[in-house]
């Protein structure tokens, strides 16, 4: 049997494991009045539950993700040869990220795009944090209820506009003959128009804008639950405002900060629309490469391999950051 079909055995394994668990539950419980899984739920419901778990594992885990993992370890073959003698397990798709399959030279294009994507996502995350922290603090601790509502509205309403429209209106603003350049030229601040899009300004602005809310709400939630007296106590003990933030507010809000930063970073690194519409002509975004492998080159195995490289790198990076800032993963989802 082809190795790519092995993954479909997993749902059956899940069913089997659940069946055994349901069966052995009564034996393991030391309470003699304890009813077994099937006694509690009845045969019909019991089987339904197990089937639902099987459905979940098949359609929501195996098919979308695990099948892709398996796919990424296979060579790209014409449909006729799939399952044939050439269809063997291989690391060539992962290798192709590092070395060109043609001549074995270093694949600087893709690795460069990968590093650029990660770097840009880090910058966007930091930039978003810098914008959102003061705003979230104001909303959570300083502002009056009315003003906070107004700010919330101003934050949320722009998200009613769909992503493409938002991206293209940013293009209109930033284009060589766009509003900002016209204004700069008109004011005599620049001789010739600045190509913001080629400078990736559009990319940064677009990505930051797209994930602003994802940053602000975890921060707001975390800071909002901080007792105002803590801030006043620090102030009363002589702390200037920046020490209050350094010693009291930020340590308290750390789980929220970690959660916001993680989400913005992950989403930015995996985003597709903003880099495509707002990136400069020479900007190569990693997910665009993945997209092209799937839909232009029809090379699913290589696309899948690239996607998993990105996923693994992002997870590793986030874990490293959480470790560095001493936040446990559990805290970030509180």
């Amino acid at each position: 049997m082809s190795s790519r079909l092995l993954v479909f055995l997993i749902p059956f394994a899940v069913i089997a494991i659940f069946w055994v668990m349901a069966r052995s539950e009564k034996k393991l419980a030391h309470d003699p009045t304890h009813k077994s899984f099937f006694e509690r739920n009845g045969m019909v419901l019991g089987i339904t539950f197990i089937m639902l778990v099987a459905f979940w594992s098949l359609f929501l885990v195996v098919l979308p993700y695990l099948y892709m993992v398996v796919e990424s370890f296979h060579p790209k073959l014409p449909p006729m040869q799939r399952g044939g003698p050439d269809d063997h397990l291989t690391l060539e798709q992962y290798k192709s990220f590092f070395f060109e399959p043609m001549d074995g030279s270093l694949n600087t294009t893709h690795m460069g795009a990968f590093v650029f994507t990660i770097f840009t996502s880090v910058v966007v995350t930091a930039f978003n944090f810098a914008i959102c922290y003061p705003l979230a603090y104001y909303m959570a601790q300083a502002g009056s209820l009315q003003k906070v509502r107004l700010i919330m509205l101003a934050l949320i309403v722009p998200y009613w506009v769909n992503e493409i429209l938002r991206a293209f209106s940013l293009r209109l603003l930033l284009a060589s003959k766009g509003l900002i350049n016209q204004a700069l030229l008109g004011l005599g601040l620049t001789e010739k128009p600045i190509d913001f899009l080629a400078l990736d300004v559009g990319l940064y602005v677009g990505l930051s804008y797209a994930y602003l809310l994802v940053m602000i709400f975890p921060l707001y939630n975390a800071i909002e639950s901080l007792d105002k007296n803590q801030i006043e106590a620090a102030r009363d003990l002589g702390a200037p405002w920046w020490k209050i933030h350094r010693d009291v507010v930020i340590p308290y809000a750390k789980p929220g900060i970690a959660s916001g930063c993680t989400m913005v970073f992950m989403l930015a690194a995996g985003s597709l629309a903003a880099p495509q519409f707002l990136g400069g002509p020479s900007t190569l975004w990693f997910t665009s490469i993945v997209y092209d492998f799937f839909f232009q080159a029809f090379n699913w195995p290589r696309g899948a391999a690239y996607a998993f490289i990105l996923l693994a790198a992002c997870i590793a990076f986030v874990m490293l950051m959480l470790r560095l800032f001493k936040v446990s993963l559990g805290e970030t989802i509180k």
Binding site: D227, N229, Q230, E232, A233, A234, D236, L237, P240
Partner: peptide
């Protein structure tokens, strides 16, 4: 308040 020669003990203590 951070420049006054006073120190305040809060009703809920507000320990860090």
């Amino acid at each position: 308040p951070n420049k006054r020669p006073t120190a305040l003990i809060f009703q809920n203590l507000a320990l860090f």
